[in-house]
Nucleic acid binder design. Structure first.
Length: 715
DNA sequence: GAGCACTGC
């Protein structure tokens, strides 16, 4: 349970619940819950274990423990205030004496690992078996049962449950934890729960947040009461640079060296923006410190980012190196990390934080429907979170590589919520499925730009998920069941018509996991050669299919993966995703089928099926030699990772990435006349910007007309 | 001829 510097907002429906006031006389029940001293566990009727008492002693030291009675009293007099899931359990038990009645408390987390680890911790605290009274539910793993009273789940998972059960009737209380992170799913849940509360006076909602935005949450939920829990962090001294730094990377490295030279022992955490920058910085830090000779203590520089193999990630928990000689200068661990260390991963023992003030952040441009990652300044809230990482074990220091003036004047107070930075096609589809028909008047805490919503509706309409009135179609309903982007769900749904659903399942799975091609710095050539062996001349999607087939043919052998520079983890995960997709296909009686591999149509069918989903992500090769995206007319380049041996006239692409240039990544050759067949509604030339592609398409349409006439006259 | 912030279903 996050007990660090947090302000917890507890919010309930403003409507009064008569069943609560009727129970007000039973305050003893509440008090008793806090002071249980029996040796029998009231949750499962078993004797408490030794471990229970050990954990209990530690829990009693937590700041929140002192407030438990206060909370329960407040609940008693306010009818509405509860905090911390275990307390909620006590409270709900006290209020629901009828044990035959089923009820469930759900607690959401933004990340799977958190849902798992927090539920394990709570099960330990209550001395019950995980998956019984306390459980969790995440994608690919449901560890809960009919006995479960307290269930941890990811916010995305609760949203999924809501799609099948719009009033969330299984739940008595819903707790949204880490609400300040404002994930897309949490924001959708905010709006949704606000509506559900109106229709379910018996449902209670608790929102937990760690920032000053608490007041905003209060206002959004009609003035719900606020409770604060003191933090347990040590003080962190903040230092700013007197002048702005021109090169934050250089400044960060210089600061590491300074700390190592001048500061007392203690580990260092440096925030940088991405893998390449981090690896580069690690090498430079090692070099600079080795130049200092043995007058300084030894260092251990550890990179940290999400795509790092777990064994490498574990190194952040290694202790700092021992002094080289007895009594010599102390060693120091230096962790160089992305934002992953800001929220997802906590490293104890960090005393010094270096914050250059940047992070890669997702931005969305609705005009060209492109999501991209841009290095941008962080928010004050984020800077605060980063500095807090220095004070977990003892008082620390944070070096901000920007001026105090810049902190005060330039940084926005909060990071823009994800919902304002994302393509919302998938979200809008989910909302439609949840029965939200009027998106314009849906009560978003931060309403997305109307253009973003319009774009999402437009895309869903072109895909046939929404009709012209904006109502969910049967296709849209099925699409919403897939944990994929709408384009991909569409291509899966139509794939049986092209007799290639087995292959489209594999391609979809491969596109849903991290890049499967490994390219170590020391073996780039060998890795490129290995990749080329999987290459399909018609495109990267088909190359991915080749890799998947080869992986299966080699019995999912990790050694085979290693020898072929294929990421075994990615492949395992693709297999897992594929199985999930197969289950969904079966549920809707979508046929699993393949074209005969020796048929000329084998790959043609696959490419046509892909086009049926991705007809809005097409680029045309202009006579000038560069590609223009169709309709949006953006100049793009084939990403150098592609494995085509030629420049096709038309390609579909999976991703548009803005880095040194505008790249389209994962591309496959398709034919212009398929566009006319597969997506005539999108390639309606009366509604098409004037360009070379339009003229080519005009010819194709004329040819089509002519062929039709000829076949008619022949008949 | 370049990269992969972080999540989630």
């Amino acid at each position: 349970m996050g007990t660090e510097r947090k302000r917890k907002v507890s919010l309930f429906d403003v409507m009064e619940d008569p069943s609560l006031s009727a129970k007000n006389t039973k305050s003893n029940g509440l008090g008793a819950a806090a002071g249980v001293s029996d040796l029998i566990n009231k949750w499962n009727g078993k004797a408490y274990s030794q471990r229970y008492f050990e954990i209990l002693e530690k829990r009693k030291d937590l700041p929140v423990w002192l407030q438990k009675d206060e909370f329960l009293r407040t609940l008693h007099s306010n009818q509405t205030l509860i905090l911390i899931p275990q307390f909620v359990l006590d409270a709900v038990v006290a209020e629901n004496t009828d044990t035959r009645k089923k009820w469930l408390i759900g607690c959401t987390q933004p990340r799977r690992v958190a849902a798992m680890s927090v539920s394990r911790r709570v099960a330990d605290e209550m001395d019950v078996t995980i998956g019984e009274e306390v459980g969790y539910s995440i994608r690919f793993e449901d560890c809960s049962s009919s006995r479960t009273m307290l269930k941890y789940l990811t916010d995305g998972m609760l949203l999924r449950e809501a799609m099948a059960d719009p009033l969330l009737e299984r739940y008595k209380v819903i707790i949204l934890d880490e609400a300040h992170e404002r994930t897309l799913a949490t924001d959708v849940l905010f709006g949704l729960l606000k509506e559900v509360l109106r229709n379910r006076p018996d449902l209670k909602l608790v929102v937990m947040s760690a920032t000053l935005e608490a007041e905003k949450f209060q206002e959004y939920f009609s003035g719900a009461p606020l409770m604060k829990v003191p933090g347990r962090l040590h003080p962190v001294e903040i230092f700013y640079t007197p002048e702005p730094e021109r090169d934050y990377l250089e400044a960060a490295i210089r600061t590491v060296v300074q700390i190592h030279l001048c500061e007392p022992p203690g580990d260092v955490l440096v925030f940088l923006t991405g893998e390449e920058e981090i690896e580069d910085a690690c090498r430079k830090i090692n070099k600079e410190v080795s130049n200092l000779g043995d007058q300084v203590g030894p260092i251990k520089v550890v990179p940290l980012y999400s795509t790092l193999p777990p064994a490498m990630q574990q190194k952040i928990f290694d202790p700092a190196p021992e002094p080289l000689t007895e009594g010599g200068p102390a060693g120091r661990k230096i962790v160089v990390s992305t934002n992953i260390a800001e929220t997802s991963l906590t490293i104890d023992g960090i005393v010094y934080v270096i914050d250059p003030g940047f992070a890669k952040q997702k931005v969305y441009n609705p005009r060209i429907r492109v999501e991209s990652l841009l290095v941008s300044p962080i928010s004050k809230a984020s800077a605060h979170q980063r500095s807090g990482r220095a004070g977990r074990t003892r008082p620390g220091k944070c070096f901000r590589l920007y001026t105090e003036r810049s902190f005060n004047n330039d940084l926005q107070p909060q990071t823009y919520p994800e919902i304002l930075r994302s393509n919302l096609a998938n979200t809008v589809l989910a909302l439609k499925k949840l029965g939200i028909d009027d998106l314009v008047h849906f009560d978003f805490m931060d309403p997305p730009a109307p253009e973003t919503l319009m774009r999402a509706l437009e895309v869903l309409n072109y895909l046939g998920a929404l009709d012209d009135e904006g109502n969910l179609t049967r296709t849209g309903e099925i699409m919403s069941e897939f944990p994929l982007d709408p384009q991909m769900s569409k291509m899966l749904i139509v794939s049986p018509e092209f007799n290639c659903s087995n292959e489209i399942l594999s391609v979809s799975a491969m596109l849903s996991v991290p890049n499967c091609f490994v390219r170590p710095r020391e073996a780039q050539k060998a890795a490129d050669e290995a990749k080329a062996r999987f290459g399909h001349i018609d495109g990267d999607h088909l190359t991915l299919l080749n890799v998947y087939h080869a992986y299966k043919q080699n019995n999912e052998d990790p050694n085979w993966c290693f020898e072929n520079f294929v990421n075994n983890r990615a492949m395992k995960s693709a297999d897992n995703v594929r199985q999930q997709l197969v289950r969904i296909m079966s549920r809707f009686n979508l046929r699993m089928c393949s074209t005969d591999f020796n048929s000329r149509d084998y790959y043609v069918n696959i490419r046509k099926a892909m086009l049926s989903g991705y007809f809005m992500q097409v680029a045309h090769l202009e006579r000038t030699g560069h590609y223009l995206t169709v309709k949006d007319n953006q100049v793009v380049h084939l990403h150098p990772s592609n494995c085509l041996d030629h420049k096709p006239e038309w390609v579909i692409y999976n991703e548009y990435v803005l880095t040194t240039r505008n790249f389209i990544r994962t591309v496959t050759d398709i034919r212009g006349d398929w566009l006319v067949d597969v997506a005539p509604h999108y390639y309606d030339l009366s509604n098409f910007p004037n360009c070379e592609a339009k003229r080519v398409l005009e010819k194709l349409y004329k040819k089509r007309e002519k062929e039709k006439d000829e076949s008619k006259s022949r008949r």
